[in-house]
Computed example of a mutant assay.
Amino acid sequence: MTPPRRSLVLLTVAASALLGHAGPTASATPGTGVEARTLSEATVDGVDYITREITIAPGGSTGWHYHDGQVYGLIRGGTLSHDAAACVSDGVYPAGAPITEASGPGHVHVGRNLGPAPLVMWVLYIKPAGTPLSVDAPDPGCGFA
Rank of each mutant, 00 (worst) to 15 (best):
G91C: 06
G111W: 03
A36W: 06
S61D: 07
G60W: 04
T55D: 08
D90A: 05
T79L: 03
I54M: 11
A145W: 01
P138F: 05
L11S: 13
S89N: 07
I56F: 02
T62M: 00
L74T: 14
L39V: 15
A15H: 00
D68R: 15
A86Y: 04
A145E: 03
E53Y: 08
G111V: 01
H67G: 13
V88D: 13
A137Q: 14
G63P: 04
R76K: 15
R52F: 07
G63V: 00
H65P: 04
R112Y: 05
V47S: 13
S7T: 14
V108E: 15
P132T: 07
Y49T: 04
S61L: 02
T100F: 03
H82P: 03
G69R: 06
R112G: 02
I54A: 11
G104M: 10
Y125R: 08
G106R: 08
I126Q: 13
Y125F: 15
Q70R: 14
A36L: 12
G60F: 01
R5C: 03
V34E: 11
G23F: 00
D45C: 11
W122I: 13
G33V: 04
V135G: 10
G130S: 09
A36T: 14
P3Q: 09
D90I: 01
I75W: 08
A137L: 06
T79Y: 05
A86G: 12
V120Q: 05
Q70C: 10
T100L: 04
D90C: 09
V44P: 01
V44L: 14
Y93F: 14
T32K: 05
L119A: 11
T55C: 10
H67A: 13
A129V: 07
P140E: 08
L18R: 07
V44R: 09
A26D: 12
S40G: 15
V88C: 09
P140S: 10
T51G: 10
K127P: 08
A84F: 10
G73F: 02
G91V: 00
A17S: 09
D48S: 14
A22T: 06
A86W: 02
V92E: 11
A28I: 02
S40D: 12
G63I: 02
G31V: 03
V34H: 05
G69W: 04
Y93T: 05
E35P: 04
S16E: 10
T38K: 15
E35T: 15
G59H: 04
E41H: 15
V92R: 09
S134C: 09
P30G: 08
T38M: 14
P98E: 06
